[in-house]
Design a protein around this nucleic acid. Structure first.
Lengths: 338, 338
DNA sequence: AGCTACGATGGGAACGTGCCCACCAAGGTT
DNA sequence: AACCTTGGTGGGCACGTTCCCATCGTAGCT
């Protein structure tokens, strides 16, 4: 085949012996087309191998059929933190039976953030998905002001105005702590995520809530703040061991931090779980590979991805729709570290 | 602020008291503009917060300033296989100082592949990056026929016609085997990746080459074929142990498979490295987390990502350019498993 | 002084599509 | 018989940009 150039809707119209509009109607599934015209158009499309030019369509409809998934690369370490990969998979799944394309934006620094907002202003995407938002993140507000549909995985604060989906962080953490209490642990410490993130605060809150309910100490000296990285977990563990040598249990707010903590525990000669019981959060594949395998709180990350994709599509279709706040359940997965 | 609608190039022209063309020239950095006109235009752009509509631009330039990164989800398990995350990071880095956007396409099945080619045909991207290609993959040929710039991470075969970048798989595997020979190992087995992939064949080839050079047995009974998954590695190890109980070394063609093999070895009571030395390939973070930490062949995956992005951008700019084949060096990282 | 060359500028056309509106034919209603 | 409705159709226009070409003034040249 080949010939000269790509066929346009005009070529198809000529071939089928109809007008451009009729071709457009067939393509967009309008009812107002006679059967014979439709057949002729479909035949012409097949013969010519015609595919509508989405850019031209986008110009007139002012839709691009693509959304952006924004991931802050700085803190995320896409790759060592499985969370982001799972979100990507989920979002991709949520888009699967749509013609919506996924644009991946890894934001490293301020410059790339400006590039992002410019890209948004240039109307390259119909909506934005934001992952791992901090309380003072300027991005959600900027996007909201630009009037662009925006959905978050997680939230800036409990008062989040934008649509978002996240897992039951409080409940998950509390379940972890209850499990440790049931196992007869006395001194239950925690390593938290960054406290300028709701996910960090919520898991800390769940830890505290469950301890209080059990009549246990939940004082600040039992808390070490880290940054969701393995090295952070290691250092936090070191600091906890220094302050509270008698600790016999740890709830880490992520599997990766738990892994770091476990390596520090081993380095200091503590046995897991005999001396110290450890629980993580996420149930990423890391949890199955630590030694011993890690008890952890499973959160449905892929489903979060699917959910925010679905919500965003809905908001793009109907910009006036109510904002949605979805909370997904967590589940305690007991392995050998407790 | 806001007011009515988004400003267009016409609004800016009126505000600056010049014609549309002059504004366009300023935006695109043409020299043929007087300083005063340029200043007036820049001022107007700033006041109005104007950002060029990239869709309209794309319609006339027939460029979208975006490329697709295609990842076969079925086999890749984005998330458990760190390779793909690293490629994504590298590609993103390679695009950083461009205005080119990255479109991520996870291909699960045939249907999504059609969707992809349609998307390509609809001219939604200027070029395509393909990862993890199989020998009989139809996609590279399809894209080549469509005349779309395409660059591969890896290659279909040594005779690959499309531009591509990959690491020195043969050399890396050979270095691993030489290391095992130097350590005094007698029976050096291997677990390969899929043999319909060049990466699988090449690493096998490197293993065989080094053994032959050392005057050792490199018979087929020492080889077990797997699929780059952990479970595959476990099963391959089991089959090797059955056939060759006396084996004292293993070269696995990926860290993930090495991890699976190690768990099987331990399950059968073999000590690592005392009884069996194990080497992986990739130097992903998994290698640092196995027990014991894994000796492995580091390949610069992020750099592969950067490289294919760079090559693709060059081919988009100059479609007539020569195809490039880049081979990146590997490096043996010795840890405690050998 | 007249002609050329060139820098600077703006208007028209085109990119390929969707949508508004006008039109036409056929059938049903008054 | 004249009117209205309705399904089916196609042409013009607009979306916002870039590019081609025509225009204009000025400086340099003969």
């Amino acid at each position: 085949m080949g010939g000269s150039r790509r066929p346009t809707i005009k070529t198809v119209a000529a071939r089928a012996g109809v007008g451009r509009t009729t071709v457009s109607r067939v393509i967009n599934g309008s009812e107002l087309v006679s059967d014979e015209a439709r057949d002729a158009v479909l035949a012409a499309i097949a013969e010519l191998g015609y595919v509508p030019n989405s850019v031209a369509r986008g110009l007139v409809t002012s839709r691009t059929d693509s959304i952006a998934l924004v991931i802050p690369e700085s803190e995320s370490r896409l790759g060592s933190e499985p969370y982001f990969s799972a979100v990507i998979r989920g979002v991709s799944t949520g888009l699967a039976d749509t013609r919506t394309q996924l644009q991946l934006v890894l934001v490293r620094d301020k410059g790339e953030q400006d590039q992002l907002t410019d890209s948004v202003a240039a109307r390259r995407v119909d909506g934005v998905l934001l992952v791992s938002v901090h309380e003072q993140d300027p991005l959600p507000g900027l996007l909201e002001d630009m009037g662009l549909p925006t959905v978050l995985a997680g939230r800036r604060s409990p008062a989040e105005s934008l649509s978002h989906a996240h897992s039951d962080n409080v409940g998950g953490a509390a379940a972890a702590v209850r499990h440790l209490v049931e196992r007869g642990r006395k001194t239950i410490t925690t390593i938290t995520g960054p406290l300028d993130m709701d996910v960090g605060r919520s898991r800390l809150h769940g830890w505290r809530e469950a301890l209080t309910a059990a009549g246990r100490d939940s004082g600040g000296h039992l808390v070490a703040v880290a940054d969701f990285t393995e090295e952070g977990g290691r250092q936090a563990m070191r600091s906890l061991l220094e302050r509270i040598p008698e600790l016999d249990a740890l709830f880490a707010a992520s599997d990766v931090m738990a892994a770091g903590a476990m390596s520090e525990l081993r380095a200091q000669g503590r046995r897991i779980p005999e001396d110290v019981a450890v629980i993580g959060f996420d149930d990423s594949f890391i949890a199955r590979h630590t030694d011993p395998p890690l008890t952890t709180v499973r959160q449905p990350v892929e489903e979060i991805g699917r959910t925010i994709a679905r919500i965003l599509l809905a908001e793009i279709t109907d910009p006036g729709a109510r904002r949605q706040h979805v909370v997904l359940p967590t589940e305690l997965v007991v392995r050998d570290s407790t």
